[in-house]
Design a protein around this nucleic acid. Structure first.
Lengths: 109, 109
DNA sequence: ACCCTTGTACGACATGGATCGAACGACGTC
DNA sequence: GACGTCGTTCGATCCATGTCGTACAAGGGT
């Protein structure tokens, strides 16, 4: 499987985006990518099995949130920040800005 | 049931918001409220049964997206735009600005 | 008082999807 | 070519939740 399918920018939908981001695991993946930039699948550090990770990455990719390219035996995943921003200005940046670092939303600093 | 429970602003979470907004029916409800302001349950014009609508309104309310007040035999629902904006600036306004008027994601070949 | 309208509560059902383990495929290294 | 690494695919499972119908509660109008 050399070529990996990605939706074009215009195919990114609000529903798809929100659904993709509504899962905690995927939200953490997006957060990590926002911090670290392009990362291999194994480098994401999520606490799920490989097959589950593959599933989540596919959901994110299908929603247009991320892109994946092959490098040898690895898959390098990165955010499509520009595309998503172009389509829905402010959404992804807002999510990235607020990605609760775990769950600090309780107390109001 | 006179008093209806609403979360305080600080309890609104990103995950909760995104989850609440990730359902098409709820997204349409939010979109309608954004257009029309305070609306009764029956005035939302969604194509689901009453019980399902009650369920969705509860999810939105629990997520902090909407508030409900009683007026006679009706429940008037409205967005908590200010609260959500205060908590996650830009998120709700972005969603409202882009509420697809149906489904324009089709072709664009 | 009666009834109608409005919405909620409850139980049942079906589907989606999050999860995992095991088997497999693609690449690089030896 | 053999092996190890990295990730995908497949099948199974299990839980959350979206959906509905029915029964019920609250208010207003006649």
């Amino acid at each position: 499987m050399r070529t990996i399918a990605h939706p074009v920018t215009d195919q990114i939908t609000m529903s798809g985006l929100l659904h993709a981001l509504s899962d905690p695991v995927r939200l953490e993946i997006v957060r990590t990518l926002g911090h670290c930039g392009e990362t291999s699948c194994g480098g994401l550090g999520v606490s799920v099995s490989k097959s589950t990770l593959t599933h989540h990455l596919k959901v994110l990719r299908d929603a247009g949130v991320t892109q994946t390219r092959c490098q040898g035996v690895q898959r390098l995943v990165s955010l499509r920040e520009d595309d998503v921003e172009a389509r829905f200005p402010g959404l992804l940046s807002c999510v990235l800005a607020h990605h609760e670092p775990g769950n600090t939303q309780a107390g109001v600093p």
